[in-house]
Design a protein around this nucleic acid. Structure first.
Length: 618
RNA sequence: GAGGGUGUAGCGAAGCUGGUUAUCGCGACGGCCUGUCACGCCGUAGAUCGCGGGUUCGAGUCCCGUCACUCUCGCCA
């Protein structure tokens, strides 16, 4: 960047056009491959870039020269010197070259309306090969899917593709727009350390051994949670940070070991202040970056309603297909499986798959849907077809005699639709399995609308019971404020306590999570105790936070949108690898540099580490 | 930790109920070509069919094991 700035300043525009100067003194780039138009006709230019296409007609030679800014057609004419012809014949794809020449208009019939530079071409006077390129391990941007591990191994080549260039640009613009907005609202960007104290907050920590203190470790932050709260105690009032976070858990398409959050925290705010700020932020950013108008306010759903209506706490609202409670109808039916589950206090829920052109609700397809439900714990998927004149047929229809109209009305079914049921003793598993069916239907029946559908999920439970460990733990994290009406019943009925918690959901992905925080020592200790941290242990692990809270902490709260996921969704991708320059694969390996790798014994010795290798499997 | 999918030339794919010389496109290499823009035309090389074992007269194809990648469950406040 600095280099080009210097060149521009050194050579004001008028002198750039003098061929002798540019040619003799500087073969430095004078313009980029996306900049030239017919207004530049006659200009003398130096372009740098890569050979994107090479069309050799013998005496006439076309080269598409590409850089980050675009593509310009370079022509080596039949009147070119023998020397220039020789260099042109030597070119191959992805050679890095410098082209000196004149901008000229293309003949009218040769204008390419597909290219922004399609009205002009550069007649080459000389071409310098800056560096050659070995035969490519895969073709860049040829429209075909290359195996991802190969793309990641040669990421530097993959990054040259138009898609990666556009997505990393979008990511830059997204972050820049967020920064600008937050700065304009008085937020300070403050960096917090990435070597911090390990605190058991949920995910497994990445640990960094201390050389100076044998047996002691730093942890990489899972989020700057406690540090940003302490910044609030420090009177910083409004803070944000583009924060790298680390979690040593198995990766997925939308989860990396390390990821980036737009972490922010505000003092003297209530929940709705945070929600409003985020709505304004994303309205600003989507308009700024994509010219996309979001609604001023996002829909809000309680956690309970989200599960009950869509079966999950991150519903994709780009299509409808709501879930209905049918316990009462199941009870009146003659289907013993349903009746038994209802009798045990379980749940029966149903949804209606709309008749869709080109999709046959065959037994085979219903089995596919059933498989999707079973992954989330359903024992089976019951079904009924709605025929002409609204008659019910197939599946469990015979058990619903006399209940036909009530059922049709409940799930809002029409002719040709398919009604699907899941029954389970657990409400969550019932919801989750039918939600999986809903999600599959959304894709298969092409129900998903274009666009961006945000919604808030609020009123989450503060605690969840951990069956394995035998105690309550924080559903979100231990620093979230219980809603005021539950303050007296925290200990007596943790399961019913709702927190001042909020998630932001976009197109079926959780894209941000936050809460109003606790800022009272005694309340914080009560939460620790409920989560099985006795005072002494809490003091050891979180003493620095509790100490800070003894010195006039302000009420505060915040949220942390995931940058990778946001940019992934904005660029219509389904993997965050597509918006990260150098991602790791699902096996936690970076195929390009082959990390993680072994280290020298000397390094281990300095860190006082002995490796206890796992025994090989028999 | 568990389940599904994939693995055939440098890349992307085809290869049927097992059958003898494993096919196509792109790329590479050589040649021709004055208006292309995914240029075109002619030719050449390039594959232990992920790896190991088994069944069989015969395995890319069937079976078992294993590895890699990938999706999902668990896990991820």
């Amino acid at each position: 960047m600095g280099l080009y700035t210097i060149v521009w300043e050194y050579f004001p525009k008028e002198t750039q056009e003098g061929p002798s100067m540019a040619e003799e003194v500087f073969s430095q780039r004078t313009t980029t491959c996306g900049a030239l138009t017919k207004a530049d006709n006659g200009r003398h230019v130096v372009l740098n870039g890569w050979v994107h296409r090479d069309r050799n007609h013998g005496a006439l030679h076309f080269i598409n020269l590409r850089d980050r800014y675009g593509i310009t057609q370079v022509v080596v004419d039949d009147d070119a010197s023998a020397e220039l012809q020789a260099v042109a014949n030597e070119l191959h794809l992805e050679y890095c070259i410098a082209v000196t020449g004149f901008v000229r208009l293309r003949p009218d019939s040769m204008v390419n309306p597909e290219m922004s530079t399609g009205e002009i071409e550069v007649k080459a006077e000389s071409i310098e090969i800056l560096s050659k390129c070995a035969p490519l391990p895969f073709q860049i941007d040829d429209g075909k899917e290359t195996r991802e591990d190969l793309r990641l191994k040669y990421r530097y080549l993959d990054l040259r593709s138009q898609g990666m260039q556009q997505r990393l640009r979008l990511r830059h613009e997204f972050i820049l727009s967020c920064r600008n907005f937050l700065a304009s609202r008085g937020f300070l960007e403050i960096e917090t350390p990435t070597l911090i104290k390990s605190t058991p907050e949920g995910a497994r920590d990445f640990l960094v051994p201390s050389r100076v203190y044998p047996g002691k470790f730093y942890a990489l932050p899972q989020s700057p949670q406690l540090l940003k709260q302490i910044l609030m105690v420090g009177g910083m009032d409004k803070y944000f940070q583009i924060a790298r976070c680390y979690r040593d858990e198995d990766a997925r398409g939308d989860r990396q070991l390390e990821f980036t959050q737009l972490d922010l925290e505000m003092s003297f705010v209530k929940r709705d202040d945070v929600l409003s700020l985020m709505e304004e932020l994303f309205n600003h950013v989507f308009k700024d970056v994509m010219d996309y108008e979001l609604p001023v306010h996002f829909r809000r759903l309680s956690y309970h309603d989200a599960l009950n209506t869509y079966g999950c706490d991150k519903p994709d609202l780009r299509f409808d297909v709501p879930l209905s409670d049918v316990n009462d109808l199941a009870e009146q039916s003659t289907f013993s499986t349903f009746k038994e589950i209802v009798a045990k206090g379980g749940f029966v829920k149903a949804l209606c798959a709309p008749r869709t052109e080109g999709v046959d609700f065959s037994r085979k397809y219903i089995t596919e849907l059933e498989e999707a439900a079973k992954i989330y714990g359903a024992q089976g998927l019951a079904w009924i077809k709605v025929g002409a004149d609204r008659s019910l047929s197939g599946g469990v229809s015979k058990f619903f005699t006399g209940l036909e109209e009530a059922l049709l009305k409940r799930v809002d079914a029409k002719e040709g639709d398919l009604i699907l049921f899941v029954a389970h003793e657990s409400w969550k598993k019932c919801c989750a399995s039918l939600s999986a069916v809903r999600t599959k239907l959304g894709k298969d029946l092409h129900l998903i609308r274009k666009g961006f559908e945000f919604c808030w999920i609020i009123d989450f439970p503060l605690f969840e019971y951990n069956e394995d460990e035998g105690h309550w733990e924080a559903a979100h994290h231990m620093f979230s404020m219980p809603q005021a009406e539950y303050l007296d019943t925290l200990e007596s009925d943790p399961g019913s306590v709702k927190g001042d918690l909020y998630d932001l959901v976009l197109n079926g992905y959780e894209v941000a999570s936050g809460s109003i925080r606790i800022h009272d020592v005694e309340l914080q200790k009560r939460i620790f105790r409920i989560c099985n941290f006795e005072d002494q242990e809490a003091e050891e692990r979180f003493g620095f936070l509790l100490n800070a809270f003894r010195y006039g902490p302000p009420p505060h709260g915040g949220i942390a949108p995931g940058v990778d996921r946001m940019v992934m969704i904005m660029s219509e991708q389904t993997s965050i690898h597509e918006v990260i320059a150098f991602p790791k694969n699902t096996a936690a390996v970076s195929p390009m540099d082959d990390s993680p790798s072994q280290v020298d014994q000397k390094q281990l010795d300095e860190l006082h580490l002995i490796i206890n290798y796992p025994k090989p499997k028999d």
